[in-house]
Design a protein around this nucleic acid. Structure first.
Lengths: 346, 346
DNA sequence: TGGTCTTACTCAAACGTTTTCGTGTTGAAA
DNA sequence: TTTCAACACGAAAACGTTTGAGTAAGACCA
């Protein structure tokens, strides 16, 4: 087992100084051609690679970015990561991942763990618990230490940093408009409680679309699902609510759900009750993932372009790190949504 | 903006030496109680945290592990990562991610990028292209430099390192046995070409199960799908093959597919052709993911316990790093599979 | 008074780099 | 012969930390 070779070892072996070796390897004209080629040959032979840690310490930059997300077993987040990774790699950066599991404490710990020199900046999506507690001290501290943050999707408006978001309201509006234009008149909405920001915005989009088409919104057509750590329980509860809704509101001919799973759940129940999709009821979901694509029938969705979000986030962060953008100037990039028409719409 | 405070700054401020500060913070009895409390108070006030990079350089360990996987937008891999992350975090390690995108070159680049001091060891699942080329020099070099590797799922047998695998053969056998025992007599197999190791093993399990139940395997019931970078194309081609198969082999009453997507595809076609699931045809898929769980009807699957794989991999790697296990001794852990019966089996 | 012990510190090296500033040796121009 | 630039290299500092060795001052004992 041959351990990694260092400048010092090469220097000793070739009977020159460390500085000479370093300069020779960087092809400095300070060093004679003769020595240069000797050193380079030796380095190649022993497969010399500069030690990243030493470089990081010297340069005060790690060329690594930290990503903190609520969960990774999640189509949207893993797509965002793949976008981040792609852009980061292109620009010579590594990506280090921390999972908050939607927990405030884990988010804080992860940030503190990484903020002590391990990384140059953060890309993150805020945990639900943090949004609920509204305790953002860890973000402020990080930014105060001069470490840039880019927030994506779940952002905190009051924090001064770069942000990448999707236009949730407009996306929902597009979806509901599509339903209306294809003939739906009684459109149910399956959303989350209002404290989840994206749920709230998507609900607003729904309402605006109705308004623009002169349709009176009916509170009885709206289900606000209670989120639960235990997804099984959450979905079971929701199933009962949807079932009751379909029993009571026979006129429903369209459903807009704020995520795939809610949409699939609704579709399952509707099919069980004998409705034909999309003839009797059309369905659109926010968030495009594997579930929608491969459901039977396949779900029409609003795509959030997660990969693009990741790429944009990485671009913004790295631009800031490399001082290509003004340090004190923060932007919010809005990523477009796209309606993907599949088999649950007419 | 107050930058991170260092030992040197504290020392200067308090007019003592750097070593005194360092020792005071670690509560060394070498330092007077008086000085200790003064230093500690100051450090707390200025929120001093030791610089990880400097520590890494000094200690020659980064407390970070590198994970290289073929893709991240993939239920199985993201679950494994969540397992790795959980265990790693519990033991004070960070996780840095590299994606190979199934490409040999990207795998090599990622490994080289991380092997130069950024991490203490690797957990990885080999890219398909690497398996095809059978070029493993990058693994050998890494191991040779004294950096431990744990391979999971897609492993290379000839390389001496720790491994974590699922018993693909046994898992398939369980699935096919279940189909036979519930009355299926003509079971189709949808698998991949043999060069994909897991595809091959799962095919073997299918054959063994048939043999043990005295059923003559028929080559005409087996589809070996050609993998394609473009999943759309791959699935379209497969659809045609499955369609043709169902037309030709009317007796088929069971289908075993080596992954979710193949199973879902087969189910879609069967339903379209008017078969009732599971009454006319039972279906089981290898790999348990969201698709299976939320398909309509929900798919019976063989679960691979991905989170457990991740945890085990991390445990093995960290144990080796912390010299809790013999450096020269390598184990292969086999993770059990479980049959999850849902609505596509009787 | 001289010696030893304890206390409470400081020094310096080390981890692996890069880079600035010196410095000794040539060779050539004046 | 002197002067000076060019050349080729080395020494040392710096990044932030830890730690063994060294040291000054005072206390204690004989």
């Amino acid at each position: 087992m041959k351990r990694k070779v260092t400048l010092k070892q090469i220097a000793k072996e070739l009977d020159v100084s460390v500085s000479t070796v370093s300069k020779a390897l960087r092809n400095s004209k300070e060093i004679s051609l003769d020595t240069r080629s000797k050193v380079q040959a030796f380095a190649k032979l022993y497969n010399y690679r500069p030690n990243n840690i030493a470089l990081s310490l010297k340069n005060k930059r790690t060329k690594t970015i930290g990503v903190i997300i609520p969960e990774i077993v999640h189509h949207f987040f893993s797509k965002v990561i793949s976008g981040i990774e792609k852009e980061a790699n292109n620009r010579g950066y590594n990506v280090i991942i921390g999972l908050s599991n939607e927990s405030f404490d884990k988010e804080v710990i992860n940030i503190e763990m990484l903020a002590n020199g391990s990384i140059d900046g953060f890309i993150l999506s805020v945990a639900k618990e943090t949004l609920l507690l509204q305790d953002y001290h860890h973000f402020y501290e990080t930014i105060n230490q001069g470490m840039p943050i880019v927030m994506f999707d779940r952002v905190v408006n009051e924090i001064a940093c770069d942000k990448v978001v999707v236009d949730d309201k407009l996306g929902s509006k597009k979806a509901v408009a599509k339903l209306i234009e294809s003939g739906c008149e009684n459109i149910a909405l399956i959303t989350t409680k209002d404290y989840v920001n994206v749920g709230k915005l998507r609900t607003q989009g729904y309402l605006e679309a109705l308004e623009e088409h002169k349709i009176e919104p009916k509170a009885s057509l709206i289900i606000k699902a209670e989120e639960n750590k235990d997804k099984e329980v959450e979905i079971e509860t929701l199933e009962k609510e949807i079932s009751a809704l379909l029993e009571k509101e026979k006129a429903i001919d369209g459903i807009f759900a704020v995520n795939e799973l809610y949409a699939i759940t609704a579709m399952k129940i509707a099919i069980n009750k004998g409705y034909k999709i999309p003839e009797d009821i059309s369905i659109i979901a926010f968030t495009d993932g594997v579930l929608s694509k491969h459901a039977i029938p396949s779900l029409s969705t609003i795509s959030q372009h997660a990969v693009e979000m990741g790429e944009k986030s990485a671009t913004m962060l790295i631009d800031k790190l490399e001082e290509l953008t003004d340090e004190e100037e923060y932007q919010t990039q809005v990523i477009n949504t796209t309606l993907i028409e599949r088999d649950t719409t007419r």
